[in-house]
Amino acid sequence: MVLVVEDEPLLRMMAADLAEEAGFDVMEAANADEALAILEVRTDIRIVFTDVDMPGSMDGMKLAAAIRGRWPPVELIVTSGHHRMADLSLPERGVFFEKPYDRRTVMATMRRMAA
C-alpha cells in the first residue's frame, strides 16, 4: 500500500495513478494531519509519497521526519517544485524527486523499495 500526500488534487490523482500503475494499492491524504491519521490505523502502508509544500500544521519534510521516527519501516518519497534536494535534509532512506518528475523513475523507485 502506498500513501500519497499532496494538497493539489490533480497532482494527488496523478501520483495515485502512478502508484497503481506500479502495482500498488493506494490511499490518499490532502495534508500531513490526514496522513498521520491514516498511518495510525493502517498497518499495511509500505511507502509514503509526499509533497513538501503543503498547508496545515506540518509540511512534507516534517511529516517525513515524524514518520521516520514513529514508523521506521515505512519508506519515504519526497517531491517538491519549490525546493531542490540540496536545500533539504531527508530522513534516512528517503528519496527526493523534483516536480515535474519522471513517472518511470518514480515507479521504479517504488518497486525497488517494496522489493
Binding site: 493539489e8 497532482l11 496523478m14 517544485g81 519549490h82 516536480k99 515535474p100
Partner: peptide, 8 residues
Amino acid sequence: KNTLAIVQ
C-alpha cells in the same frame, strides 16, 4: 513549476 506538474 507547479503548473508544469499539473500539465503533466
